[in-house]
Design a protein around this nucleic acid. Structure first.
Lengths: 336, 336
DNA sequence: CCTCTCAGGAAAACCGGTTAAGTGAGCGCC
DNA sequence: GGCGCTCACTTAACCGGTTTTCCTGAGAGG
């Protein structure tokens, strides 16, 4: 009960392997009658092409890779990646391409993973996420000549194409919204320093805040609730505490809300909270969090589309994908 | 600048491909001197075996598959899967095996995916998660003769080995804990009906509650915050509302906490909340949630180990992996 | 000195496809 | 009638490994 191969089909059809291959792939050089007969036999025998054989012969693995290096615990609770992955998946599955996932705790191992995957021809290309400023990985990928797309990063990094989102406009939207509510002391709890979008937002926040006559303050955390809680406690315990805090992801914002509850600071009466990375998490808590978000699954799909094109040899340009929009909910209100 | 193949090594070493293959795989039939020379050359040329070639020749893909069919939005916020995946990953990467992931919204497509993967020899085996009672998938897998392990299900399903956790003892632990705090009206918000562990917990909850003289109540939700919130509102609005609610996952428990806040019901003063599936999410909110949990990453690693063994042809038995433990935190307290 | 044995390595088949090159029949055209 | 052309298909090489079979030469033993 072995699975059928094209050789089996060829034998049954009384032709050769190559004819079968041509017929099954819809290429010219086979008469319609023969083609129909071959297709019938293939269907009847339940033939499916062997991925590995195709990959070996065609030189393409039909697999794209994604390395995520955040500790498992952090990763689990942060919706961003799962949404991105599911968006990528949706696009790839329609293209008959698979996603190879690697979850690491070690940033250094990532480069090694890329080298290994490429050397083994295990993947046709990779998604580069969590781009840092002066990211070494872009150089490695460029050097390897490995198709790669920078998810959330600018163009021109080692010549790799990127797909990013507008990080400036949402910062302005959030600040103008808070200012309109009367807030003048606004803090920002930033995510991992060194990440490209963190730097972008930091810079925009500082600049636009001053422009709007707001006193910016803030701190840095690593996207975990614990770190965000520490920063939030410090901010709220200061002599001139902020009346609004903007968090760089949803997890930290929820943690901030928890700290407010713990300190008996009512939200939004005495403190407004805004989350980046809108997700169900924001609507899970009470009050629901005002958040800046976009359709991450759609973003993932677009990124996947571009990387697939790139891996297939088609040229891909860099682009800005979308601008996150602000969804006001219960966690923000006029300053007392 | 092509990557080196064993043929290149053979040419440089003045031997044949087969000798190189034997040398590189540590098989007998090659003199130590020749072996050392070949290994040197291979290292110098930066040779890496081609996955696809190995897979084609050896008949093994070096890939294990996981199909998760929950909508992207739900999945993203639920830490369980990411932790499981990262545990699986950790184990597999040390075995030089990859994880193929498919995220579906459609339960029906899952069976097709298995068939396709197996026909294309894309994977050597699959993880079967979210086991339902009378699950059709076990039959399909058994029929295909595809190595598979049931994650969180009993033994004997179509002969597939399983690795599950003790679902009974934690139910007893939670109920005894709540009873000791004086609770007599305890509700349970169950997860997706039809899932094996939901049924197990339902049954255990009912039985042990009666045994302890507790009036059980409850409802069913689909693991989403929205559904859990609806059920919670109904429970709390009833004439004899529960003094404690046990939720089948962390996301629903957080939603329940939100509903309590929205209804001005103080936790734990007037309502105690217990979450299954402990995760950072439980410690993110205020008060932090009392939860029943276990090391899911370790569970994933053990499951991966077993499936890898199975795919390699080694016999694997079913087993109970662990018993979740109760971590009391701020969301539970003595009944008023 | 002849044979037997066996290690070390060569040759070739194989896995399941793709693809370039070759072949023979049928046909139109001058 | 011969030439060239196209069509439909065959032959054979190739992808990069693994594995089986076969060959050769050296050393041991009688």
């Amino acid at each position: 009960m072995k699975r059928p191969t094209i050789a089996d089909i060829a034998r049954r059809a009384g032709v050769t392997k190559s004819t079968v291959s041509f017929a099954l792939n819809g290429r010219p050089g086979v008469s319609e009658a023969t083609r129909a007969r071959i297709l019938d036999i293939a269907r009847e025998m339940g033939w499916q092409p062997s991925r590995t054989a195709r990959a070996l012969s065609g030189g393409r693995a039909g697999v794209l890779g994604l390395v995520v290096d955040r500790p498992a615990r952090t990763l689990g609770v942060e919706p961003f990646y799962m949404q991105l992955i599911s968006g990528i998946e949706a696009e790839l599955s329609s293209r008959d391409t698979a996603l190879l996932l690697q979850v690491t705790d070690d940033a250094g191992a990532q480069e090694a993973t890329y080298r290994c995957w490429w050397a083994e021809r295990r993947v046709d290309g990779v998604f580069l996420v969590d781009l840092r400023v002066d990211d070494e990985r872009t150089k490695v990928l460029a050097e390897l000549g490995m198709p790669a797309i920078v998810v959330g990063g600018p163009h021109g990094l080692g010549g790799l194409p990127g797909l990013w989102n507008d990080e400036i406009a949402p910062v302005r939207a959030v600040l103008e919204y808070l200012v309109a509510l009367g807030h003048r002391r606004i803090a920002r709890v930033a995510g991992l320093p060194g990440l490209w979008h963190t730097v972008m937002r930091d810079e925009a926040f500082e600049r636009i805040a001053r422009e709007l006559g707001v006193t910016p303050s803030g701190g840095t955390a690593d996207y975990t609730g614990d770190a965000a809680a520490r920063v939030t406690r410090r901010l709220l315990a200061s002599s001139a505490p902020p009346t609004a805090i903007v968090y760089d992801n949803d997890v930290m914002a929820v943690a901030g809300l928890g700290v407010a509850a713990e300190m008996n600071i009512r939200v939004p009466d005495r403190l407004s909270i805004v989350a980046w990375d809108d997700s169900v998490l924001c609507r899970l808590v009470h009050p629901p969090l005002t958040a800046v978000g976009l359709d991450i699954a759609a973003y993932g799909a677009e990124v996947a589309r571009r990387l697939a094109d790139l891996a297939a040899g088609r040229p891909v340009t860099s682009a800005c994908h979308a601008t996150a929009v602000l969804s006001p909910r219960g966690s923000t209100g006029p300053v007392r």
